[in-house]
Design a binder for these strands. Structure first.
Length: 135
DNA sequence: GCCCTGACGTGAA
DNA sequence: ATTCACGCCAGGG
C-alpha cells in the first residue's frame, strides 16, 4: 500500500504525486518538481526518488528533465534512448538530447502563448547550407 | 559517525 | 556556449 510509504517518506510521495501530475506532452525540471512538491532546492532528492522508483510505480519519469531541457542520462545510454523515445511518442521533440522547454515546459508553455512571440520568420528559415546548392 | 556519490541547480569566469 | 566551484542532502559503505 502506498499509504505506508507515504507515512515513512512523505517527501518522496509528494514528489511522486507531482511527477504524476505532469501533463502528457509536457516536461518539467527536477528543480521545478521539487518546488511544486513543497521542497525548494531539493532537485537531487527528486532524482533519487526517480532512481529508486520501480517501473511498477507507473511514473511518467521521462517527463522530467534537467533545468536546461537536457536529458539527465548520459547521451547514448540505455535510459537516454528510452527517455527520448517516450518523449517523442508524446510529440515532444528531442534534438541533440535536448527539449525546448519554452515550448513544452509544463506551465512555461502557457507563458509562451501569452507572451505572444511575434512570429518572426527569418530568411534563414530556408537554411541554405552551400552556395553551390543553388548554383 | 565520517566520507563519497549522485537521473541536480546556479552563478561566475 | 563551456567549464568550474559550490550548495544541497539522502543513502550506502
Amino acid at each position: 500500500m502506498k499509504s505506508v510509504d507515504a507515512k515513512l517518506k512523505p517527501d518522496h510521495s509528494a514528489i511522486r504525486r507531482v511527477i504524476r501530475s505532469i501533463p502528457p506532452g509536457c516536461v518539467a525540471s527536477y528543480g521545478e518538481v521539487a518546488e511544486r512538491a513543497g521542497l525548494p532546492r531539493r532537485a537531487r532528492l527528486v532524482a533519487r526518488v526517480l532512481r529508486e522508483a520501480p517501473p511498477s510505480a507507473g511514473l511518467p519519469w521521462y517527463r522530467v528533465l534537467r533545468a536546461n531541457g537536457r536529458i539527465a542520462f548520459p547521451a547514448g545510454s540505455r535510459g537516454f534512448r528510452e527517455q527520448a523515445r517516450h518523449l517523442a511518442a508524446e510529440g515532444v521533440l528531442v534534438v541533440g538530447g535536448r527539449v525546448d522547454v519554452a515550448v513544452h515546459g509544463w506551465d512555461r508553455n502557457l507563458d509562451a502563448v501569452l507572451w505572444a512571440p511575434a512570429p518572426r520568420r527569418k530568411k534563414t528559415t530556408i537554411t541554405r547550407r552551400s552556395p553551390r546548392t543553388r548554383g
